[in-house]
């Protein structure tokens, strides 16, 4: 079941996505999270952030909307408090998810986390739809995304994976720009910008007005974008979006993903990732897959 992601071997391709898995220990109470390939920890910024006002969560057919707004204790506290706690329950390299409000923010936070021995990859989130003047505004403009990637690459040594937003006209163009700027890998997709309106109050249900859509509803969109990006770049892709079964993992890999993140499924079933890892060998056998590395991008080769 092992795969390689930017030169680092994973026991399996299953990775809980940032923002759905905290810093790991909430889940380590319920199962041994060392069964995972790795996980991407909660999006971290230079300064602490409270995030958006309530309500932050809404539901829809086949998924959910969130407008958390990058609540996190800030990089200093993450290094001082969260990573030592994480180390006790997770003994593999972890993916550090980073967001920011300026190029300098990204570079600063990535440089700090790059020095942490536990960190195996930096996942640079230029795609959060729920903050203003940061996050997604970098991920919808190829020049801005390139500037972030170049600045981060200049101050780090670990593989840099850029997390892309689906809220663009041409995801392949964004992917090519990030690759050209030096990205070692790409993860996609972040959530789709969405909203709900409360019929009683006749107002947007989320205090932030809009939120990010995730869950099974977005899986076909994510799959399509992974497929398109696979044709556009040669760096490895982490497929993200609505994955909730071992079959979905295989499908994402056939579209071109070298590894797969699982997000919203963790919130409705805390054991979702463990169960996907457990189910994977059976599904591989069913479809005659001996080595997962062999099927990456398989849908492109006729």
């Amino acid at each position: 079941m092992s795969v390689t992601l930017c030169g680092v071997e994973l026991d399996n391709p299953v990775i809980p996505a940032s923002g759905t898995f905290g810093y790991g220990y909430e889940f380590a109470q319920y199962y041994d999270i060392n069964c995972l390939g790795t996980f991407s920890f909660k999006g971290t910024t230079r300064e602490p952030r409270y995030g958006n006002p309530q309500p932050r969560i809404a539901e829809c057919a086949g998924g959910m909307l969130n407008a958390v707004g990058l609540q996190n204790p800030g990089v200093e506290k993450v290094i001082a408090e969260e990573l030592p706690r994480l180390k006790k329950c997770f003994h593999k390299p972890v993916m550090a998810n980073v967001s920011g409000f300026s190029v300098d923010d990204y570079a600063y936070t990535c440089e700090r986390l790059d020095k942490e021995p536990q960190v195996g990859w930096l996942e640079v989130n230029v795609s959060c739809p729920n903050v203003h003047g940061g996050g997604m505004s970098f991920g919808t403009d190829p020049a801005a995304a390139s500037a972030v990637v170049r600045a981060v690459k200049a101050v780090t040594t670990k593989p840099v994976i850029v997390k892309l937003t689906p809220n663009v006209t041409d995801i392949a163009a964004m992917a090519r720009a990030c690759e050209a700027a030096g990205a070692d890998g790409l993860s996609l997709i972040n959530t789709l910008q969405a909203m709900r309106i409360d019929l009683k109050s006749r107002k947007p249900l989320l205090a932030n007005v809009t939120g990010g859509l995730s869950g099974p509803a977005v899986f076909p969109v994510a799959l399509r974008m992974v497929y398109q990006v696979y044709e556009a770049v040669s760096v490895p892709i982490v497929g993200v979006g609505g994955v909730s079964s071992a079959e979905d993992v295989i499908e994402m890999m056939l579209a071109g993903a070298a590894a797969v993140e699982v997000g919203a499924a963790n919130l409705t079933d805390p054991w979702a990732c463990r169960d996907i890892v457990r189910a994977l060998p059976g599904v591989m056998e069913k479809y005659g897959i001996e080595d997962l590395q062999d099927i990456i991008g398989g849908a492109h080769h006729g």
Binding site: T20, E26, G51, Q54, P55, R56, I57, P270
Partner: peptide
């Protein structure tokens, strides 16, 4: 009460501010 995503402390969907900093209603 709060609108919750997970209900067990993972998603930060139900956070409220307290005198001791942000806390999760669910956890």
């Amino acid at each position: 009460e709060a609108r919750m995503g997970c209900g067990f402390g993972a998603c930060m969907g139900c956070t409220r501010q307290t005198t001791a900093g942000p806390k999760r209603v669910c956890k």
